[in-house]
């Protein structure tokens, strides 16, 4: 008799998403929803959606959600956690949101050791607005604002946020994972669950999981080519691993 061993988690609403075919957001959403189901925390969790492709995350996560100003999610999360220490607060942010406009907010939330969980989706472009360069766009990568490829002498270097944040004593757990292979996605699930468990156990400090995520549409690749590019190029610039905690 066949037993079902894998299905959509409850914390993920049963509806189509607006994400492009092969987009990593859908995978990240499922891993977080599985974690919420497995830890049984739907009734205590409040999620924060960024401005970016995932701004509509409140249509997909079946928990209390808020959508906030671009880059300000860590500050909103701070306001929520400080006044509701018993709630589980997660901030879901893209690379434009967290590493461009919101750099100040994530560094200060980390430096204060806010007991929140940050899920940082790094897909190396601004997706929602049409594929412009992001702080994490890698060198020579063509985007709609680096038509000749990112040139360090003009646009600087890809920003390694996770490494940056490991220097702050206020961070207790930082891991960079990737969504381009099932084995790595399993590991990403473990990392996300660990981050949520730290918050659940009032561990003193901020936990952040960076997820390298495919963006086939604005990398101008097929989804399969995109995961190959992540394997061959992206993980060189953004090495995977548990950086802290």
């Amino acid at each position: 008799m066949m037993q079902k061993v894998f299905s959509k988690p409850q914390a993920l609403k049963d509806c189509p998403t607006h994400y492009c075919p092969g987009c990593g957001h859908g995978i990240a959403h499922r891993l977080i929803a599985e974690t919420i189901d497995e830890l049984g925390i739907r009734g205590r969790t409040i999620g924060i959606a960024p401005v970016g492709c995932a701004v509509l995350a409140y249509d997909y996560f079946d928990v209390d959600m808020v959508e906030v100003a671009h880059g300000r999610a860590p500050a909103v999360a701070t306001g929520m956690k400080r006044t509701n220490p018993d709630k589980i607060i997660f901030s879901y942010q893209g690379d434009g949101d967290l590493a461009a406009i919101g750099t100040g907010e994530i560094i200060h939330a980390a430096h204060r050791g806010e007991q929140i969980t940050v899920i940082f989706i790094n897909n190396a472009v601004f997706g929602m607005t049409g594929g412009q360069m992001a702080p994490t766009t890698i060198l020579n990568q063509v985007t709609t604002t680096t038509p000749l490829g990112r040139d360090a002498s003009k646009q600087g270097y890809p920003l390694q946020v996770s490494e940056l944040l490991t220097l702050l004593p206020g961070t207790i757990y930082i891991e960079r994972c990737s969504l381009h292979k099932p084995a790595l996605i399993r590991n990403a699930k473990k990392a996300i669950k660990h981050a949520f468990e730290l918050q659940l156990n009032n561990a003193p400090g901020l936990s952040l999981v960076e997820l390298l995520s495919p963006c086939p549409t604005y990398w101008r690749m097929t989804p399969v080519k995109a995961i190959e590019w992540m394997e061959n190029e992206m993980t060189k610039v953004f090495p995977l691993g548990r950086l802290k905690g």
Binding site: I48, V68, A69, R72, A75, A77, G79, G104, E105, R112
Partner: peptide
């Protein structure tokens, strides 16, 4: 009760936004 000095007024108003979203007087 909660007092927090933020990193900027941008952050302050968004912290206010967060606390207000959970129904607190802020």
């Amino acid at each position: 009760r909660v007092f927090l000095q933020s990193e900027s007024e941008l952050a302050s108003i968004n912290m206010v936004f967060g606390a207000a979203a959970t129904g607190k007087r802020v």
